[in-house]
Structures are given as C-alpha cells and as structure tokens.
Computed example of a mutant assay.
Amino acid sequence: MRHPKLQQWDDTMKKMFDEIDNHLEDEWGDHFPLHPNRAGRGKTSNKEQDGLFNVGTFFSAGYGSELGRGYVIDIHMVTLSRIPDEVREEIEEEVVSLVRELLPKYFPDRDLKISRDGNVYKIHGDFSLGNL
C-alpha cells in the first residue's frame, strides 16, 4: 500500500513525462524504425509501452552523489538502429529543456531543479509530502 500523497506525486510526474513523450514522438518518432516487438505510438494504454520513446524517472537515494536524492531522468529509444551520439545528446538536451519548462507547471509550489549529476540528469529539491 502506498501513501496517497506519494501516489499523487508519482501520477503527476507520469503526466509530465507523458507530455514530454508526446513532444518527442512528434519531433523524432519517424527518424528511426521502431523495434519489431514494440507497439506503434498510441496502440497501448500507456505511453511507456508504445512508440519510439520511453521517458520517465526513477528515484535515487543519492548515495555518492553531490546532489543527494532525486529523480534520475531515464530516456530510452526503442529501436534496433544505431543512434548517433550527437542525436542522443540533442534529444537529451531537448528533454532537459522540457523538464525545466514543465516542472513549474506540474509542481507549481515546489523548489525543484534539474542538474547534471555525473553522467545523468537529476530532478532534485523539495520532495516533501506535507504532514502525513
């Protein structure tokens, strides 16, 4: 069983990354062939399961990190084709820019930032759930 405020937090984060997924699919979805075992865009009820992109986050306790705990941004392109490093970097920069733009919209009363943490980007800041 999960705390309702944590569930709401996760649901909000998912909505934000679904919006980012839509943007990436519009911009890049036709640039690379889809993996043969992957459903086409919009063919499932969950954007994580279809289309070229699976973007989201996973929580890290931050051990060994200068930034501490936070949500690591995870970007997967589901294709068998080789993706040039410069294209990966361009897509990563686009995701980071979109997260910076959308964090205040989805989490308006939070002090959240996105920063490079080693070789990944991490959302960090105020993750408090209020009085439990």
Rank of each mutant, 00 (worst) to 15 (best):
Y121A: 00
V120N: 10
V120R: 14
F107R: 01
S115V: 00
Y71G: 00
G64A: 09
N54W: 11
I73G: 07
Y106K: 00
E48C: 06
G118D: 09
S81E: 15
S65D: 11
P104A: 03
T79E: 10
R38S: 01
Q49R: 14
K43E: 15
L67A: 07
F53S: 01
H35M: 03
I20N: 07
M77E: 05
D117I: 08
S65H: 14
E27N: 10
S81A: 15
R82C: 04
S115H: 11
I83E: 05
H124S: 09
K47M: 11
V96G: 07
V87R: 08
F53D: 03
K122L: 15
V120C: 02
H35T: 04
G68P: 02
I123T: 04
L67N: 10
A61Q: 11
F58H: 14
E86W: 12
L103Y: 02
V78F: 10
T44L: 05
Y121H: 15
I114A: 05
R116P: 01
R110N: 08
G51R: 06
N46G: 00
H31G: 04
D21K: 11
T57E: 06
K47I: 06
D85V: 10
V87G: 01
E25P: 03
N46Y: 12
S45F: 07
H76G: 01
D85A: 13
V72T: 08
E19A: 12
E92P: 00
F107Y: 02
Y63M: 01
L103M: 03
R88L: 07
V87H: 04
L80V: 03
D109R: 11
R110F: 09
S81H: 09
G42M: 03
P84I: 05
I20C: 05
I123Y: 08
P33A: 13
E101K: 14
D21G: 01
D18A: 11
M77S: 07
D117Y: 03
R38C: 04
R41K: 13
R38N: 09
I123W: 11
G68L: 10
K113Q: 14
H35D: 15
N37I: 02
E101P: 00
S60A: 13
D18I: 01
R100H: 08
D30F: 06
E27T: 15
V55Q: 01
L24N: 03
F53I: 01
I73L: 11
R88S: 09
E101G: 02
R100Q: 13
I75R: 02
L67T: 09
H76F: 14
D21H: 15
L67G: 05
S45G: 15
R69N: 12
T79H: 13
N37R: 14
D85E: 14
Q49N: 14
F53A: 03
K47S: 13
D50P: 04
D18G: 00
V87D: 11
E27F: 00
E89P: 00
G70I: 08
Q49S: 08
L52W: 05
S81F: 02
E94D: 14
D18Q: 07
E66N: 13
G56Q: 03
I20V: 13
R41P: 00
F107N: 04
G70W: 12
T57P: 07
L80I: 05
S65I: 04
R116W: 06
S45Y: 06
Y106Q: 02
T79L: 05
D21Y: 10
L80M: 12
W28E: 01
L98E: 13
E25S: 04
D30R: 13
S97A: 15
S81D: 15
K47R: 15
P84Q: 02
R116M: 05
V55H: 03
